[in-house]
């Protein structure tokens, strides 16, 4: 099938404003958008820039807006998108070149919530045991690949990049509800701040955008409830 790709282009060295370029490519319905982008880069226009790494939906490098919605280019199939596909960079981030955006504000927000295991108690002789139910409590939020599809689909983040955003809250949730971690209260205090969870207006764009199908809004809701009640169950 013939596919028309309308691609956002911006080169900071030559362009004052971004533009769109259209490419016609032959594709199979089972091709991924990443396959088409790689075909264009290797055979039509070598200046096209985008991030990619594993190409299997795990590394989270190739999150971009495809037909107006955040997706991973390596998971978006042509047959689900039709023969006219628009590819644009993530919203709310500074565009460096074409689909490449400056991810630093995103990672700065991520680091704020202390996304690592904290427990100063002396370690037991063997491992820190956890029941199946305790592990299940935060299972969903362990799946995050930090692609930023959720955070950059959030109108609250578009309005203010200081808002920690769904991805940071999801990663805070992963440790707040971990029975072995001891810094839950500190993280809740951070998320109770001016740019914390209460900037979430339950719009659900994040949940719909997540390529790992994490229930992002539910995780944010649970963090809100934990702040309100002071309970972590």
């Amino acid at each position: 099938m013939q596919v028309t790709l309308k691609i956002f282009r911006f080169n900071p060295e030559t362009d004052k404003k971004p533009s769109y370029k259209t490419y016609q490519v032959e594709a199979q319905p089972t091709d991924r958008v990443l396959d088409l982008l790689e075909y264009i880069k290797s055979t039509i226009d070598g200046t096209l820039s985008f991030r990619r790494s594993c190409a299997h939906g795990i590394c989270g490098s190739d999150a971009m807006r495809i037909n107006g919605r955040n997706r991973l280019a390596c998971k978006a199939l042509v047959k689900d998108l039709g023969n006219r596909i628009t590819v644009e960079p993530l919203l709310g981030m500074r565009v460096l070149k074409d689909m490449i955006v400056d991810m630093e504000p995103f990672f700065e927000n991520y680091r704020q919530v202390m996304p690592y295991f904290i427990n100063d108690e002396p370690p037991p002789a063997r491992e820190r045991l956890q029941s199946i139910e305790e592990r299940e409590r935060f299972d969903d939020t362990t799946k995050c690949i930090l692609c930023a599809a959720c955070t950059t689909s959030c109108p609250s983040f578009w309005a203010n990049e200081k808002y920690v955003g769904p991805a940071a809250i999801v990663n805070a949730h992963r440790f707040i509800f971990d029975s072995r971690d001891r810094a839950g209260k500190e993280r809740l205090d951070i998320l109770n701040g001016q740019f914390g969870v209460y900037r979430c207006h339950t719009i659900f764009n994040c949940t719909d955008a997540c390529p790992r199908e994490i229930q992002v809004t539910k995780a944010i809701g649970e963090v809100k409830a934990a702040i309100a009640t002071g309970k972590l169950d």
Binding site: N67, G68, R69, S153, P155, W158, I203, F204, N205, D208
Partner: peptide, 13 residues
């Protein structure tokens, strides 16, 4: 922002 395809939940917001 309005062009983002958030669907029903975004429209209701």
């Amino acid at each position: 922002g309005l062009k983002y395809q958030g669907g029903g939940p975004m429209l209701s917001w």
